[in-house]
Design a protein around this nucleic acid. Structure first.
Lengths: 208, 208
DNA sequence: TCCAAATTGGTAGTTACTGTCAGTTGACGC
DNA sequence: GCGTCAACTGACAGTAACTACCAATTTGGA
């Protein structure tokens, strides 16, 4: 997340009929480098495991210097944590209808976002999840990522209901949603179904 | 966590009329060292911030070598993440009456556990939470702790309701509870009141 | 008092990550 | 084409959190 993508949108001059298709040679090279690093890293992780693969090895495999590696990815973890899903959820939430309950809106946003992923993205998502599941270091990092994104959701909910972002209800709401989703997701089956079920259960007041 | 406390309960021989009061000079010294390290570390964190305090500085302040530091705490993070509250909650939960709803039982357990803490412990808990909230590094580490606690609560609730510990409902329940509690606590007022309110709100299905 | 075991400190090494600085390369006006 | 500028890159040095290992000290028990 963060830096990489959106910040580099300053192509000045030129580009008469090129909108987003011809970002210039430099941009393209950057994108390719970024992708190469990621692909090589994933391969090495698969072959040797996450923690026993060093940044130096990744850099070498991708044919860049270690310095350059860190210019593309702020941390080793970021390689695995780059997440295309959560921003989609946040955006979907902004567009959710106003007539439904808060939890329903969140549920719809999740489902929308997941539906928006194509097959390749879903596959990548699976591999990512498997990797994360296997390495403890990565798990906590991912949960942190998750948390950050759900803070965004909390903000969205605050806006939606006209409350302060740090109001008691919004905080508890966000916390409970985070927790419920975390508790619900295991890697064995469909993510969307699990999230949906968890949020419905939450809306019923968690009867046991 | 792990090693330090419970594992070192092997005083062999002797101790005719000493039960848990006289753990031997060696044990006592270890406990004191452990406490000193923690106290000094907290002080340094308060004064200079978490990330700009090095393990070396902590070790020096506590008058031990860096090697020794790592024998008492496996990581720097562990200094902050050691949590005295959750085990109490879990124990209280085991003793909760069976006639009430699951969430009510949890609520009662929290209140019980919090009542069992003395003032100094509460203060430490506050400081800990503030520190964790302020440092991003710590937040992700805390989520590991979160996961552990999720499993503890899930186990207790599973026993209570006669379900499998990894059943979907139990896991979502535990996640939501912990998430809600964490979201609810800020430094400004009584923890017990906040937790109670959060769990009641949760039981109503989080209307916003 | 003496021995064995536990505890400790020191030293060397690995790895993720940061800062800097000079060399290169692509972009753009001419 | 061509020079200039900014961005990109790689090499280097350095920091800090650990880890492994061994020698010295301290402690508990006989």
């Amino acid at each position: 997340m963060s830096s990489g993508g959106a910040a580099a949108r300053h192509n000045r001059g030129m580009s008469q009929h090129a909108e987003s298709a011809a970002p210039g040679l430099r941009e393209r090279k950057k994108i390719r480098t970024r992708a190469t690093i990621r692909v090589e890293a994933m391969r090495l992780f698969r072959e040797n495991g996450y923690s026993s693969t060093t940044v130096e090895q990744i850099a070498e495999a991708a044919e860049v210097s270690p310095s350059t590696f860190f210019r593309y990815y702020p941390t080793k973890e970021a390689l695995v944590l780059t997440d295309d899903l959560d921003p989609l959820v946040v955006r979907a939430l902004a567009n959710a209808p106003t007539g439904v309950s808060a939890l329903t809106a969140v549920r719809m946003a999740f489902v929308d976002a997941l539906a928006g992923l194509d097959e390749r993205a879903l596959l990548l998502e699976r591999e990512r999840q498997a990797l994360v599941a296997s390495e403890p270091d990565l798990r906590s990092a991912m949960l942190d990522d998750f948390r950050r994104n759900l803070e965004l959701i909390a903000d969205a909910m605050a806006v939606r209901t006209g409350r302060a972002a740090d109001s008691f209800e919004v905080r508890v709401f966000a916390g409970a949603v985070i927790g419920a989703v975390q508790g619900s997701v295991d890697m064995t089956s469909n993510i969307a179904d699990q999230v949906t079920a968890a949020l419905e259960y939450l809306e019923q007041g968690l009867p046991l």
